[in-house]
Design a protein around this nucleic acid. Structure first.
Lengths: 243, 243
DNA sequence: AGTTATTTAATTGTCTGGCATTTAAATGGC
DNA sequence: GCCATTTAAATGCCAGACAATTAAATAACT
């Protein structure tokens, strides 16, 4: 654990990198306690505040957790999928907005990835996944639902579909693509007719999944993609004409 | 920008969250300068070191960048795909290793996602993408190549395939799935026969891509998946018997 | 002896105040 | 008008201190 005096990066960044590398390489293992802040400042020959800044950097990435008190300290954190989800979603969301990714591009990515789960999900989905999807369809058909709530339910529906593939890695990767689209989806106002069409496609999709019909799932998803894309396109068009 | 005194989270975490929320909500826009550390400590009523810890947290997520000097300060950073790549890969890698995800599960996720790009890539790949893939195939067939270099070339090959889809969102999501597998792949020793088989499949794949033959690409990828999975399985088996 | 209350020590969380370094802009000299 | 110098604002870093938390050691009491 050494640092390069010729680097022009912050000391705290260098120290964070050093510790991060040790974690990635397996030099530091899960739940292992790091030296105390005082010991670290000795080892790296920097002040305690600088060490603390480095530790906060790692904490921001969920690589460590800290505990106060006598037996406290910083511990290598077991990065769980649950913990990684929100970060993945935040990053994806910001990537879309800051890089002005078009609705079409984001939508294409989302459905392309999602359709890839169709085969596995049709094969492995449990009754539980199906039940969640049916429940969300029911919620979506309730009158008086706000557009935001409708979108949130849509996300939950699609997440159940993806989770049906029974592959946590797949679920994790998809979370970013699906949930990051929510801000974009929220820009659309869904008319009653739009909702009915979407619910119809969702029902077709759930039926196909129940029948273990992968092709049917794929077709329904393709339908959803084109319907959503066209909807967004017409919304943008209207907005343009108004302005 | 207020903080909750009843929260049991660190002050620096609360402040970081407050600023992060402002960025996500669009309250702070790209390249906008944050108040100076002194001003922030006044606003949040905390000391400068605490503010600094908060800023380091945000820097660790590439949400801000800092600049020294007279007109310096912390600026909202435009999160680019290039910047987000390494973080995505690091997180994915740690998720796989820390959660003891099996080779099969990771492999399935990777090829499932990758196959989803086949259609788009067969449609849109440029000559450039093809050239990269051919070049990597050539590298892979060179004798004396280490297993690590072989794997690295493999990653580059597949990245060109994914990039061929011409969708940056897709490329970003795939990076995590493909590159995070490298440590797992590096556990395999590739015999000359293995390499020949993989190169053969890569060639088939490149040919199909050149002919805009999506089905061919998909078939080749399926072949790669089953071959890789079986290879890993036999390696694990041998290792088991030895021990 | 066993249980409870108290003390102690270790550790993180936070603050104060200061100095060093960097950088752009203001100033001054030519 | 141009170049060198100074100045001011900002981050980077440090030293030392105190508060808060927590588990373990100790003491007190039954």
């Amino acid at each position: 654990m050494k640092i390069d005096p010729n680097s022009n990066a912050d000391l705290s960044a260098q120290i964070a990198k050093s510790i991060r590398d040790a974690i990635i390489s397996g030099d530091l293992i899960v739940d292992q306690r790091l030296p105390s802040e005082a010991e670290l400042s000795d080892q790296f020959d920097v002040s305690r505040p600088t060490v603390r800044e480095a530790l906060k950097r790692l904490a921001a990435q969920s690589l460590i957790r800290t505990q106060r008190g006598a037996t406290g300290g910083a511990f290598v954190n077991k990065l769980s999928f649950e913990e990684a989800y929100p970060q993945q979603i935040t990053t994806s969301t910001l990537l879309l907005s800051m890089n002005a990714v078009s609705f079409e591009t984001a939508c294409e990515a989302r459905y392309t990835l999602e359709r890839s789960c169709a085969l596995l999900s049709a094969l492995r989905r449990t009754a539980d996944h199906l039940a969640t999807m049916r429940a969300e369809i029911h919620r979506q058909s309730q009158p008086g639902l706000t557009d935001e709530a409708f979108c949130a339910s849509d996300v939950a529906f699609h997440r159940a579909l993806v989770d049906g593939a029974g592959n946590p890695v797949l679920s994790y990767q998809l979370a970013g693509a699906v949930e990051a689209m929510q801000p974009l989806m929220n820009m659309i106002t869904f008319s009653a007719r739009d909702r009915a069409k979407i619910i119809e496609l969702h029902t077709t999709l759930a039926d196909a999944l129940e029948a273990n019909n992968a092709t049917g799932v794929d077709t329904a998803l393709a339908g959803l993609e084109s319907y959503t894309t066209n909807l967004a396109k017409s919304v943008m068009e209207k907005r343009k004409n108004k302005a």
